[in-house]
Amino acid sequence: MTRQKKGQPNKASQKISHVDNTSGTAQRARLLERLHISPIDTFTAIRELNIVRPGARINELRGLGHKILTHRLTLTDDQGRAHRGMALYYLSTNPPAEVAA
Score class of each variant (00 low, 15 high):
Met1Asn: 13
Met1Phe: 11
Arg3Glu: 14
Lys5Leu: 11
Lys6Gly: 11
Gly7Ser: 08
Gln8Trp: 08
Asn10Ser: 10
Ala12Phe: 14
Gln14Val: 07
Gln14Ile: 05
Lys15Gln: 13
Ile16Asn: 15
Ile16Asp: 12
Ile16Arg: 15
Ile16Val: 15
Ile16Glu: 14
Ile16Leu: 15
Ser17Phe: 03
Val19Ala: 06
Asn21Met: 02
Asn21Cys: 10
Thr22Glu: 10
Thr22Val: 11
Ser23Trp: 04
Ser23Thr: 15
Ser23Glu: 07
Gly24Gln: 03
Gly24Cys: 08
Ala26Arg: 04
Ala26Pro: 08
Ala26Leu: 11
Arg28Lys: 10
Arg28Leu: 04
Ala29Leu: 15
Ala29Thr: 13
Glu33Ser: 14
Arg34Ile: 14
His36Thr: 14
Pro39Thr: 03
Ile40Glu: 04
Thr42Met: 00
Ile46Lys: 15
Asn50Tyr: 09
Asn50Phe: 02
Ile51Ser: 06
Ile51Cys: 02
Val52Asp: 13
Val52Met: 09
Val52Gln: 15
Gly55Pro: 01
Gly55Glu: 05
Gly55Ala: 09
Arg57Asp: 03
Ile58Gly: 12
Asn59Val: 00
Glu60Ile: 03
Glu60Arg: 07
Glu60Tyr: 11
Arg62Phe: 06
Leu64Pro: 00
Leu64Gln: 12
Gly65Asp: 02
His66Phe: 08
Ile68Lys: 05
Ile68Gly: 07
Arg72Gln: 03
Arg72Leu: 11
Leu73Trp: 13
Thr76Ala: 01
Thr76Met: 12
Thr76His: 10
Thr76Pro: 05
Thr76Phe: 09
Asp77Gly: 06
Asp78Leu: 07
Gly80Lys: 06
Arg81Trp: 05
His83Pro: 05
Arg84Leu: 04
Gly85Pro: 07
Met86Asn: 05
Tyr89Val: 07
Tyr89Met: 00
Tyr89Arg: 05
Tyr90His: 11
Leu91Cys: 05
Leu91Val: 08
Leu91Arg: 09
Ser92Val: 14
Thr93Gln: 12
Asn94Val: 03
Pro95Lys: 00
Pro96Ala: 03
Pro96Gly: 05
Ala97Gln: 14
Glu98Cys: 07
Glu98Asn: 12
Val99Lys: 09
Ala100Leu: 10
Ala101Thr: 06
Ala101Leu: 08
